[in-house]
């Protein structure tokens, strides 16, 4: 088990990343809080020795994605419609049009768009992380990009 100091450092360093992944998947604050606790509890109890901060970050993203999927699959999870999410997000802050377009994307595209354009992961890296074929990732990425461009009125998104 990791020390409390180490866990606090990880929370301080990766809280934003975990929150963003949660936002991509859940967009619900109560669920985000649950996921936060689950992810950092797993981190505290995990015996994995991280070689680099990148390794540590990738591990946390992977664990957060799994936790979100588990929560969404859970029978007891209260399902919130996409419209509700969007409304909630819109209420939370009045972010730019791009963000709204991202929120409107199906979840599978949102994930790859986030991992690629924000976290900077390549398709093979994402394939490893999401346990998917690299070509599938390319497909998801190109379709997601296309949808996003369409919703933003043909504005080009760099590859």
């Amino acid at each position: 088990m990791r020390s409390e100091l180490e866990v606090c450092r990880a929370i301080d360093s990766y809280a934003d990343t975990v929150r963003r992944v949660c936002t991509v998947y859940l967009k619900n604050y109560a669920d985000t809080e649950d996921i936060f606790q689950t992810v950092f509890l797993k981190y505290a109890l995990s015996p994995v020795a991280f070689e680099t901060p990148e390794h540590e970050k990738a591990w946390l993203i992977r664990v957060t994605i799994n936790a979100c999927k588990d929560l969404l699959k859970s029978v007891f999870h209260h399902r919130v419609s996409l419209e509700e999410c969007l409304e909630q997000e819109a209420r939370e802050d009045d972010r730019c049009e791009v963000w709204r377009a991202v929120c409107a994307l199906p979840q599978k595209y949102r994930t790859v768009i986030y991992l690629h354009y924000y976290e900077g992961y390549s398709a093979p890296e994402m394939g490893k992380m999401l346990k998917k074929n690299t070509n599938s990732i390319y497909t998801l990425l190109s379709r997601g990009r296309k949808l996003l461009e369409e919703s933003l009125g043909g504005e080009q998104l760099e590859v």
Partner: peptide, 30 residues
């Protein structure tokens, strides 16, 4: 647009309460 996208994600932060709640939960639990 890439930068706008990045900026949109950048705007998402874990609030102090979220961090503190997680720390408190782990402190109590472990």
């Amino acid at each position: 647009m890439k930068y706008e996208l990045k900026a949109a994600f950048d705007a998402i932060h874990a609030g102090e309460d979220l961090r503190e709640n997680a720390k408190e939960f782990l402190h109590k639990k472990l």
